[in-house]
């Protein structure tokens, strides 16, 4: 049997996709096979852009490659281990290998990721969708109101503390370094001392 490398890749991708979808009844549909082959073609540079990233789960720090569609949805087409990365040499665990689904959700189902600001008013029984502008304005006002109300320049012993007693924060080891730095600077500029995150638990 003779197969070109590309043909082999297309066939095996089809097979992989077929088995991935087997549980939800797509297995025998020619349309699914065609979609799979199209997805492989879309990984070519004329259709998608490659960027490197590092896994968002444990701290081994495995490298991954993200292929993002240049047209259409402009969403990731594929995310896989980076064979050039010296730690993982292309390998990934089950979670790392599923990052595509973390970003995109389950094919055929609504993506469960939060995509809108949601708000629950005091004593409310449901969520309401809100705009970023509305929410950030309201949170900023809450911060100011309660910082002003609870800011303490001197403690009970009369020692200078210059801190905000009424606000606290947890998070986050899931953020980038630059975000972590900016976040702690923001919190400390408000005067927070109750600043904690995953490293403590």
């Amino acid at each position: 049997m003779s197969l070109t490398r590309r043909g082999f890749l297309q066939l095996s991708a089809t097979a992989a996709l077929t088995s991935a979808f087997a549980g939800i009844g797509f297995a025998a549909k020619p349309a699914a096979r065609k979609a799979a082959v199209d997805r492989i073609n879309q990984l070519k540079p004329e259709w998608s852009r490659q960027t490197t990233t590092v896994c968002c789960y444990c701290a081994v720090g495995c490298g991954l490659i993200v292929n993002t569609a240049l047209a259409g949805t402009k969403r990731p087409l594929n995310i896989e281990g980076d064979p050039d990365h010296p730690i993982n040499e292309g390998a990934l665990c089950a979670k790392g290998a599923s990052i595509w689904q973390l970003a995109e959700g389950n094919p055929g189902s609504p993506n469960p990721r939060l995509q809108k600001v949601m708000y629950r008013k005091p004593y409310g029984t449901k969520w309401e969708a809100k705009s970023w502008d509305w929410a950030l304005d309201r949170i900023a006002k809450n911060i100011k109101r309660d910082r002003d109300a609870t800011f303490t320049e001197k403690n009970a012993k009369g020692q200078v503390v210059n801190r905000c007693e009424g606000l606290a924060s947890v998070g986050s080891a899931a953020m980038d370094n630059e975000e972590c730095w900016a976040y702690q600077a923001f919190l400390r500029s408000l005067g927070l001392t109750y600043i904690e995150h995953q490293a403590r638990i």
């Binding site: 995509q115 708000y119 005091p122 029984t125 809450n142």
Partner: peptide, 25 residues
């Protein structure tokens, strides 16, 4: 109906949708 807390749920994006650094173990 008995919980007073006002809750804001803000959607952040996933790691592959932004740029920056992380530090491994």
């Amino acid at each position: 109906k008995k919980v007073k807390t006002e809750v804001f749920m803000l959607p952040c994006c996933v790691s592959v949708e932004k740029e920056g650094s992380i530090t491994n173990s």
